[in-house]
Nucleic acid binder design. Structure first.
Lengths: 146, 146
DNA sequence: TTAGTTGCAAATCGTTTGCATCAAG
DNA sequence: CTTGATGCAAACGATTTGCAACTAA
């Protein structure tokens, strides 16, 4: 699959060009297992010896986003946008408020609920944010000692 | 409740001051039933004849957010941050990405799911964030015309 | 009186854009 | 060759900040 991402398939066709920079951006995105900012991608490319400028990173990200190859998201507060390869799985995370350890959930408890909502509200529902938080066993016993 | 919000309770104590501008910002927030941007609050105050400058609006919003009186959120894309009175009822909302119209959901689809998770992961689950978004009938038909 | 609040203008931060140059096809 | 991709620097929009004036307590 990494092969698939680095390969030509995505970048060619429709007049798009398969350039070294674009390949590098995709590589950076797929190698970091978590959502990353444009800045982080930029720095990672610089560190790997690929010279790029930040606007090229942004332009590439816009391109990949418009091609639906990556997802774009923001984590509630201020922060800059984060990008992540769009593996079309849909998953949520359980996050520990203490140590930030996260557990990926293999089920989405909302799918049927959204279907019901769609019918009730006539909204065209495009997505949701769901984050469940608490304390993992370790942090929980720790906090109860305080 | 509106009375409560406009009242002194929130704004006084801890060295905070109950000023006309702060009251006006809270009023604007509680009168618009949907999440609003700093700019929108600013304009609404100007229209009501309250003279403010945008930085005061931002500072007031920061203050209210840090006091946990309002919530701050962003709707996925670029756009500016939106703010909303934090009514501490546990409820979720369906938000239109177009006009930001919101529908309060009277059920939380997660309660049984969380019980199951607790058993499976041994996490002490303390809460969750859930926001469902999409396009309301109006905005949806509008966008499909383009 | 005095510390918190405001307005103003300038600064900052993330992101976008115009334009000339470069390179993939 | 032709057109899409890039670098650069300047522009942009949202938000923040320094500072002096103001005002609630």
């Amino acid at each position: 699959m990494t092969d698939n991402l680095n390969g030509d398939s995505i970048l060619t066709g429709n007049g798009h060009r398969n350039t070294r920079k674009r390949r590098a951006v995709i590589k950076a995105l797929s190698e970091s297992g978590k959502p990353v900012t444009a800045e982080e991608i930029y720095l990672s490319l610089i560190n790997s010896g690929d010279s790029v400028c930040i606007s090229t990173v942004y332009r590439t990200l816009d391109f990949l986003f418009s091609e639906n190859i990556i997802k774009k998201m923001r984590f509630n507060d201020n922060e800059s946008a984060c990008y992540e390869i769009n593996r079309n799985e849909h998953s949520h995370k359980l996050v520990c408020r203490g140590c930030r350890k996260t557990i990926s959930l293999d089920v989405c408890p909302l799918s049927e609920f959204e279907d019901k909502l769609k019918k009730e509200t006539l909204f065209n529902i495009t997505g949701h944010n769901l984050e469940i938080f608490g304390y993992c066993p370790d942090c929980n016993s720790e906090s109860s000692l305080i």
